[in-house]
Design a protein around this nucleic acid. Structure first.
Lengths: 143, 143
DNA sequence: CATATAAAGGATAAAAACATCTTTTAATAT
DNA sequence: ATATTAAAAGATGTTTTTATCCTTTATATG
């Protein structure tokens, strides 16, 4: 449903949120291990996220990644869009081009509502919300 | 959300359902054009679907593809699974391995219900249902 | 200032998805 | 029977996604 890259990105951001702060940064290699993400690939993803203000970083000794309050508030859908591109969740379910709302495709009929809810929830929630869920024991960050 | 290949497959099956019957078969090349699917690639997909009893075919002059009543009744989810493999819709939304229901991942919390609905609708509907929607004017088969 | 550290950036490689081409097999019509 | 048609099957090519490696830049510390 999401690309491997998007899953990596969200997992990494969650791990950073749970294990770092403005004062206490975390290294790419220390996310890579516990989250089971190839280190070099993760670095590229974090680079991308950093360019889009979805994660913060400092170089050099004592450096690493961390999340600001603002980083925490980025809607999940934007993270997915940065990594997977617009079309993955936006395009018509059946065609490669966009589905016209006036002329819905046959899958629109069947799963359009579920998809709309799915997307809406990704729009209305951010990394911070997921972190809350973990801290309150409602969910668990998987390996 | 679905792979390009899955979209091709569903579109092709719908086009066959609408334009062929036991007596009146349709050629791969006559689906390829109107549905905007590369002919050789479509042939491979139909071959796959044929092996799984999701489409019927006869070779030689006057041959081609058509759908039996049974072909029409295959749940959409099975078509997706044949083309994309099990994991695309089945795997955890966050991890690469499966999400434990006892320990839901943070995305489960947020979009689990929408995803479950989405999958359920794909389980409960078949090509025949989509065809009905088109014939009744509720939806339109896109190019 | 020199050195070490760690992210940023660029180049390259491997795997998967998408696509094409050629040969073979089955069915029909002449 | 023979020729023709069209799907099945196999081999190969291209593009995108995933992954690695090497160099450069920024920052901290002795």
């Amino acid at each position: 449903m999401f690309s491997t890259s998007s899953k990596y990105a969200v997992k990494a951001l969650l791990y950073i949120a749970l294990n770092a702060a403005e004062g206490k940064r975390i290294l790419a290699k220390d996310i890579s291990g516990p989250m089971n993400i190839p280190k070099a690939y993760l670095s590229k993803l974090l680079q991308d996220l950093s360019k889009h203000n979805m994660v913060s970083s400092v170089r050099g000794p004592g450096g690493g990644f961390y999340l600001t309050e603002d980083n925490m508030k980025v809607p999940l859908i934007e993270i997915i869009q940065v990594i997977d591109g617009d079309s993955r969740l936006n395009s018509c379910l059946l065609s490669l081009t966009n589905c016209d709302a006036e002329k819905p495709c046959p899958l629109h009929d069947i799963v359009g509502d579920s998809k709309a809810h799915f997307v809406k929830n990704l729009q209305e929630n951010c990394i911070g919300d997921l972190v809350d869920g973990i801290k309150e024991g409602r969910s668990v960050l998987p390996i």
